[in-house]
C-alpha cells in the first residue's frame, strides 16, 4: 500500500544538502569532553535542585501561613498594646498622684504638724462617753436593733 515508487512529490527532487552546521572544530574536542564528563561528572545540581523542588510547595505553604499570621496578629497586637499602654498610663497617673500627695505631705513643715496635734480642737472620738461605749459593747444588739434604737 505504501510503496515508495508511489511517493515522489516535487520536494523530493530537490537537493538534500544538510542545512545545519556545527561550530568550528566541534567534533575535535568532543571525545575529551565526554570522557571528562564520565570521569568527573558535573557536580550534581540534582540533589539540591530536587530538595528545593520537593520543599517548594511546603515552603510556599509555610510562607502563606506566616503571612496570614502576621496580617491577623499584627492588628490584634496593636490593639492589645494600645490597651496595655492605656492601662499603664492610668497606673502611672495614679502612682504620680500618690507621689504628689506624698510630696505635698512632706512639704508641710514640722511646726504645722505639731500645732495640729497639740491644738484644742475636739475630735469626734473624744465626744463618746465611756459608759455608753461599754453599754453598746455589752448590749449584743444586731444592726437592725441598733438602727431602730437610734431612730427611737
Amino acid at each position: 500500500m505504501y510503496e515508495e515508487e508511489n511517493i515522489e512529490p516535487e520536494f523530493m527532487k530537490r537537493d538534500k544538502t544538510n542545512p545545519f552546521r556545527t561550530p568550528d572544530r566541534y567534533f575535535d574536542s568532543l571525545g575529551d569532553r565526554i570522557m571528562g564528563e564520565i570521569r568527573h561528572p558535573a557536580k550534581s545540581k540534582t540533589t539540591s535542585t530536587k530538595v528545593i523542588r520537593l520543599l517548594k510547595p511546603v515552603l510556599g505553604l509555610a510562607a502563606s501561613i506566616t503571612l496570614v499570621y502576621i496580617l491577623i496578629s499584627n492588628p490584634i497586637n496593636h490593639f492589645l498594646l494600645k490597651g496595655t499602654i492605656n492601662s499603664q498610663a492610668d497606673v502611672t497617673t495614679a502612682v504620680s498622684s500618690d507621689y504628689d500627695s506624698t510630696l505635698s505631705f512632706s512639704s508641710i513643715d514640722d511646726n504645722t504638724i505639731i500645732n495640729a496635734i497639740s491644738s484644742d480642737e475636739i475630735s469626734p472620738v473624744s465626744q463618746i462617753n465611756p459608759e455608753d461605749m461599754l453599754a453598746y459593747l455589752s448590749s449584743r444588739m444586731n444592726e437592725v436593733e441598733i438602727y431602730s434604737e437610734i431612730q427611737n
Binding site: 520536494f11 530537490r14 544538502t17 542545512p19 545545519f20 552546521r21 556545527t22
Partner: peptide, 15 residues
C-alpha cells in the same frame, strides 16, 4: 534561533 543553520529559505521551509 539556531545560529548554526546555513540553509536557504526553501530548506528552512522544509525543516
Amino acid at each position: 534561533s539556531d545560529t548554526y543553520f546555513d540553509g536557504d529559505e526553501w530548506q528552512m521551509l522544509l525543516q
